[in-house]
Write a protein that binds this DNA or RNA. Structure first.
Ligand SMILES: [Zn+2]
Ligand SMILES: [Zn+2]
Ligand SMILES: [Zn+2]
Ligand SMILES: [Zn+2]
Lengths: 166, 166
DNA sequence: ATCCGTAATGTAATATTATAACATAAAATG
DNA sequence: CATTTTATGTTATAATATTACATTACGGAT
């Protein structure tokens, strides 16, 4: 089974989310084994919290969750775990929200192109090389050499657009 | 004289920046007159500070400048002026830097596509409708209806790339 | 197994960015 | 000029993020 371009985008409202979480944790674990990274209990716990929904979660909300799960935690606890998870592609930071969202494709090098629904607040990830290439090309025309792209798009997802029955 | 697509991108190091500032203030003033907006002394002062360079400036740095210019100022003073300036397109917020940069094209509706140089920290603005259209189109393929785009690209500008003489 | 060096986490304090709430002043309207 | 609205002043606080240093856990050597 090949994942479509919208693999990480806006799962159906009724989907079995425990599967999303389990898959993401498994995938991260495998990636860590393969790359000699330490997928410590804390990092796993933070990743699980981030994956608790398909919407971005703030660092301090993660902190609260950790404490709920009776783990000693302070801001650096969270930010350090997030740094690891972001560095290795398990989590993306949504800059325009100062919040974090899970990514289930740690292996593929990709710029995250994020679709942020203003209605349900879920975030889908488009991973479209054409967009990345066009931007790099256009930047090049003014002599700019691109190393990283931040793309965050606001709008309304298909789930929410279909709900106009008021 | 027609402005090129890179009008706002990476002016030459030796350019007459007082002209940039004067033009930006004039342009903003004209836009405000035309649209019945109040270009108050505070808003003008903040815009001038933002335009002091072609690199993003943080709100608290603006605050310091205001106080240097012996104006009573507190965070809301700055954030409210910035809100006005951003709302009307005189300034853009760079989300990935929590900082603000001037825009000299308040009239044209545009998504800002920002090129952020990691070397000189200047920011150029690409205003390319093709990029915006491609993103909107790709988002549409997953049923997402785009209302706003945040595009911030890291890399090295042409000025800095040319300076490799170490 | 013990030692050692490194990487991860714990902990306290603080820095940075942003907003809420309410008072005052200035401007637009009639 | 009285009224209403808009902008600004002022104080406090919320929300986000980092620094610095102590402690613990891990991985690789002997
Ligand atoms: Zn799910
Ligand atoms: Zn939605
Ligand atoms: Zn200039
Ligand atoms: Zn540069």
């Amino acid at each position: 089974m090949t994942k479509s371009i919208s693999a990480n985008a806006f799962p159906a409202h009724e989907h079995d989310h425990t599967v999303c979480i389990a898959d993401a944790l498994d995938s991260a674990e495998q990636h860590c084994v393969a790359h000699q990274l330490r997928f410590t209990p804390l990092r796993r716990q933070v990743l699980e919290i981030v994956w608790s929904r398909h919407a971005p979660i703030g660092a301090y909300e993660i902190l609260d969750e950790l404490r709920n799960e009776s783990r000693a935690a302070a801001p650096p606890t969270v930010y350090r775990a997030l740094e690891f998870l972001v560095d290795h592609g398990f989590v993306h930071k949504i800059e325009s929200l100062n919040a974090f969202v899970g990514c289930d494709r740690p292996d593929s090098e990709h710029v995250g192109q994020f679709l942020i629904c203003g209605s349900c607040h879920q975030v889908g990830e488009l991973d479209d090389p054409e967009i990345a290439k066009l931007i790099a090309k256009k930047a090049k025309t003014v002599g700019f050499d691109v190393s990283h792209q931040t793309i965050e798009v606001r709008g309304v997802c298909s789930n929410c657009a279909g709900e106009n029955h008021a």
